[in-house]
């Protein structure tokens, strides 16, 4: 699984998140808004109590988010493989070796790190919209 159409990806990502056993058990306080910057495609994901409230596939200049992950398309595609190759196997690995940058209010990221880490791993099931 890697590149998929944006609207399908948004549906799949929301569905995978909302049905995930781990997030359903541990997501009670997972409420935040973040940006995934995949180069040609940017999305803002709004989370509320562990569920996807909205996926904004066309962020406008003043659409707010608390933190952002920015990485080249190739990095996102590598992270979205069913079994990622070394250095594509997580946001920390990619930030050290594959050009991923964590930006914005990183405290919010750290406060939600357990759930966010799990949610980003769901890209291995859903692919990415680039």
């Amino acid at each position: 699984m890697s590149s998929v159409a944006p609207t399908k990806w948004a549906e799949d990502f929301a569905s995978a998140t909302n049905q995930d056993a781990e997030l359903n058990v541990h997501g009670k306080f997972f409420t935040c808004t973040y940006l995934l910057d995949m180069g040609t495609r940017k999305v803002i994901v709004e989370m509320h109590r562990g569920k996807v409230e909205n996926v904004n596939l066309d962020p406008q200049p003043l659409d707010a988010y608390q933190f952002a992950l920015r990485a080249p398309e190739e990095t996102w595609r590598g992270m979205a493989k069913e079994v990622p190759e070394p250095m594509y196997h997580g946001i920390w690995a990619a930030s050290f070796r594959k050009g991923l940058r964590m930006e914005g209010d990183l405290l919010v990221l750290m406060q939600n790190l357990r759930c966010f880490t799990r949610q980003i791993e769901l890209l291995r099931q859903t692919g990415v919209p680039v």
Partner: peptide, 25 residues
């Protein structure tokens, strides 16, 4: 400093912060 930051759950930050030091396999 994130490993011991009082505004985050340090236990989870440490544990999930090292999660992808492990292989997915």
């Amino acid at each position: 400093d994130w490993w011991q930051h009082p505004h985050a759950n340090a236990a989870q930050v440490c544990a999930s912060g090292v999660w992808d030091l492990m292989a997915p396999q």
